[in-house]
């Protein structure tokens, strides 16, 4: 019982916290917009997410800072990538080694879009691509951050521009790897579709009005439907002449 209360109170606290954060975000985005408009610098951004990568060969995973992903707001679909420093020569060698050995290039981001990096028990979401295809696409990749409205990051997707691996080891070692050319997208949960009754009713109403606008048809019943009546009458006349009651049948399977 006590544990339950603790849990629920924790949950409530977390909700409150998230709400608070959302409010902060809205506030922050407003201030950031002002900043951008004041000095026209794109680097100052309200939402920043550090991205880490692992370029080590072997079983051990060592994640090191790669740069940061910046978003103007939670509603804005695209973001930008900022690399704090170019890849060190030894790092670029590691990456080459990784590509040559057919290893995986991994990347991860924290699960909270709003700066919370100080806390220790931070969760990460991660994904990977083939290291060789990163080199194949000349260090160009597309990073998509999937988040929900509260700013929680659900997943990351990292894709190379070219997914193939055709470069030889010599070609790889001759490459100059210093900066990433990254396209960043923020993908939010979209609201689900609802049955569009409103538009349908409007359409029906429109059709009805259109019919009315066309004016009432003053022709007589026969004048209007002679094309249906004549075949029926003809058919009746023909079939009336020769009496042969044929059973139903047809249709179905």
């Amino acid at each position: 019982m006590a544990a339950y209360i603790e849990n629920s109170s924790k949950a409530a606290a977390k909700i409150c916290f998230q709400l608070l954060l959302t409010v902060c975000v809205i506030f922050a985005t407003k201030t950031s917009k002002r900043l951008v408009s004041d000095d026209g610098d794109d680097i100052i951004s309200s939402l920043s997410l550090p991205i880490q990568h692992s370029i080590q060969t072997g079983d051990q995973l060592v994640f090191i800072e790669r740069g940061s992903l910046n978003f103007k707001s939670l509603t804005h679909g695209t973001g930008s990538y900022h690399q704090s420093s170019a890849l060190m020569p030894h790092e670029s060698n590691l990456l080459k080694e990784l590509a040559a050995s057919g290893g995986l290039y991994r990347a991860r981001v924290p699960t909270q879009l709003l700066s919370l990096q100080t806390s220790e028990d931070i969760g990460y979401v991660s994904s990977y691509m083939k290291a060789c295809s990163l080199l194949e696409s000349n260090m160009s990749d597309e990073v998509t951050i999937h988040a929900d409205q509260s700013g929680q990051v659900l997943g990351i997707s990292i894709l190379p521009i070219k997914g193939t691996c055709t470069k030889s080891i010599d070609e790889i070692s001759a490459m100059d790897l210093t900066t990433f050319n990254t396209t960043v997208t923020l993908s939010l949960v979209v609201p689900g579709p609802v049955p569009d009754t409103q538009a349908y009713l409007e359409k029906m109403e429109e059709e009805r009005l259109q019919k009315k606008a066309n004016g009432t048809d003053n022709r007589s019943f026969f004048a209007k439907y002679w094309m249906y009546i004549i075949p029926v009458v003809l058919f009746l006349m023909i079939s009336g002449g020769q009496e042969q009651p044929r059973g139903g049948g047809g249709g179905g399977s």
């Binding site: 909700i15 998230q18 709400l19 979401v125 991660s126 994904s127 990977y128 691509m129 998509t144 999937h146 929900d148 509260s150 659900l154 997943g155 990351i156 997707s157 894709l159 993908s187 949960v189 979209v190 609201p191 689900g192 579709p193």
Partner: peptide, 27 residues
């Protein structure tokens, strides 16, 4: 959700790379 209203979220996920291909939420 946070306001105690029930909702259903649908995710389409590529299970080789963990890429969320599509996510939609019904309130």
């Amino acid at each position: 959700d946070a306001t105690a209203k029930s909702h259903v979220t649908v995710y389409l996920i590529d299970v080789v790379t963990g890429n969320i291909v599509f996510q939609t939420d019904h309130k």
